[in-house]
Each structure stands twice: as C-alpha cells, then as structure tokens.
Design a binder for these strands. Structure first.
Lengths: 172, 172
DNA sequence: GGCACATAATAACAGTTGATATTATATGCA
DNA sequence: TGCATATAATATCAACTGTTATTATGTGCC
C-alpha cells in the first residue's frame, strides 16, 4: 500500500462513508501490521479467538459465528492446521462434520492476539474518555442496525440478468 | 456472501473493531448493491467523483487524492475508458503522463452516484438527529487521526526478513 | 428400505488485489 | 553532454476472495 503522499489536490469535506471506510481500513491495517509478527492475518485471528470460546464446534458453526464465508474458513483452517495451531477431529455422530480444537501451542498466540487487540484499541482511542468510546460504538451500532434491517433492494428482476462483476454497461 | 444464518453460537460483547468493520462492510455493501445497477464498483465511483472535481489531473494524482493504489487506478481507468466514461489525453509537458477527463456521457452517471450516495446515507442515518451524525463523524475522525499519526511500528528489523503474506511460522 | 432433499466439507475456477519489475521519459548535476 | 536517479504508466505474477460444483453424509417421509 504505497500511495504517493496525497498531493495538493482539492479536499472536499469528508463524507460519512469516506470517514467510515478510511477509519476501518486504517484500524485493520494497524492491527495486521502487528499481527504480521505472529504470521497471522486478521481472519486467522478471528477464527482463533472465536474458536477459543467454543471448542469442538464444526466449521460451519465457526464460520457462522465469526461471520466468515465457509469456503474461506476451510482455507484459513487448512493453513492453521498446517501451522499446528488447530486440530480437526472426526465428529462422533456426523461423519461429514469435523470438530475443531485448538492445540496447546496456540495458547501463547491467543495471548499475543489479545495484547495486539488491546494495543491497537488503545492507540485508536488515545485521548478518549470511556464515555466517548461508548457513544461512538453506540452510534456505529445504530447505523449498522439501520442498514442490516433493510430489505435487499427489491431488485427490479429485469429481463437482462446482470453479471455480478461490474462490467461495461451501454447506456441506452 | 452467503453465510448460514448465524447459529446459536456464543456471542460475546462486540468489540470496537468488530463493530467498526461490520458497519463499514455493510455500508459499502449497501452502496455497491445500488451501484451495481450502474455497472460500477465503489472504487470506480470514487475515481469518477474525485476526477469530476479536478479534471485534467494525472493518474498518480487521482490515485493519490482518491487514496487508491496507482496500479489499481490503471485498471479502473482501463475499464472506464473502455466503457466510455473517461478519456486519457496526452500531457503537453510530460510525455509519460496522461491527463484525465470525463466524457460528457458520464454526467448522468455522476448524478446517479450522487443519488445513490445520498440514499445510502439516509438509510444509514434513519432516526438520527443531525447532531448525532456530526458527533459520530467527529469521533471517527478522531480515531482515524489517532491511528494515522502513529509511527510505522519501528519494525524490529530482525535478521529474518518475514514474508509479507501471513505464512507458516515455526515457533522457535 | 429407499428415495428426495438438506447439509458439511471441499474442489475447481474466475475475478480481483497487491507487490514487484519494466519501459519510457524527465530532472539534476558533474 | 551524459550519467545517475526519480517518476508515470503499465505488465506480470502470486496470493486471495467469491461462486459454483462435487462428494459424502445425514434426515424425513412413503
């Protein structure tokens, strides 16, 4: 991510989505900058943390609670199993499913993740009163709730099925 | 993005980065859900909007002001030039550079983007007083500023150069 | 029991993104 | 002038993500 330092270009008053995105991206970047020392990406960290809270669950369950796409979860687990942090055991009653467990070796990792998360949080909220933090989170939650409870855009279901990747569109 | 509806898994109190990310992602998703009807992705919209504010700039400049990676910008412009929204003209004094211009056909597009942005904004802030919105943005800006002004993590510059992609890491 | 259908995990593939290398040109300085 | 270095744009390649298809099971109903 090597942007040439922002030039003397016009800077219009930042819109909400701009600030929201920029902040989110920065925050993740900072987190991953630290997590890189552990050889972990954010999704991996998420998987580890969520798994630590309810070991023995299946992959779909973990994917569901960590809000990660099941297919991505497979790949994350492949990597982490290889790295020796996680174990996939057979499920006693369901031969399709696998029960997930953390290997003891992952303990220090989880602690490190915790430290990293705190450190990032502290950096982000330097100079904030606790109440401000709560307010900010509450606001974001409200926005999130607003969007989450919207209908999926009724989609005109028009004759021409559109490609999912944004593509050439001839203006009629 | 087809998660199986979040299972009965334990749900710990949401942390800040969780809420921040989730909100940001949802917001973008909602925006792109609408923008898809125009055949545009969010980066494309960004490029168009920023370009509209200072036509005649070069690609690096646009990349800089829109905070998009220059290489990504190339690809975005390739597509949009093809689609006939944007023009690359030779730069009079610098034969390496190209000056960017919007083609007239992009005008309705820009208007549509504007409408979409407003619509999304309105959905997100349903039930907010203007003051709340301002407060929320101010909070985010503060966080953003906090992180943005951090040193790049002094990187221990340790002997072993680490791969940038999170990879197997044998615990010593 | 056996058939229709759902589900867990994974494979295969396509599209996108990010990092580095390449090419042409500019710029500063000896 | 001529060489070292910087820069704009782009090509190339590897990693990652998302989508759909595949395989092995499980579940309910007749």
């Amino acid at each position: 991510m090597s942007h040439p330092k922002v030039s003397a270009a016009i800077h219009t008053p930042p819109t909400f989505w701009y600030v929201l995105n920029a902040t989110s991206k920065l925050y993740v970047q900072r987190f991953e900058e630290r997590a890189r020392e552990l050889g972990l990406t954010l999704p991996q960290c998420k998987a580890l943390v969520y798994l630590s809270r309810c070991q023995g669950i299946s992959q779909v369950e973990l994917a569901g609670s960590a809000e990660i796409d099941p297919m991505s979860m497979v790949r994350i687990l492949d990597r982490m199993e290889l790295d020796g942090w996680v174990e996939r055991r057979a499920h006693p009653n369901d031969r399709r499913a696998r029960r997930l467990y953390l290997k003891p070796s992952s303990k220090p990792l989880l602690e490190a993740i915790d430290r990293i998360a705190s450190a990032t949080h502290d950096e982000a909220f330097a100079g904030f009163a606790q109440q401000e933090v709560n307010l900010l989170m509450a606001g974001l939650e409200k926005v999130r709730h607003n969007i989450a409870s919207l209908e999926p855009l009724t989609e005109p279901v028009d004759a021409a099925p559109r490609k999912k990747t944004a593509r050439t569109r001839t203006p009629e």
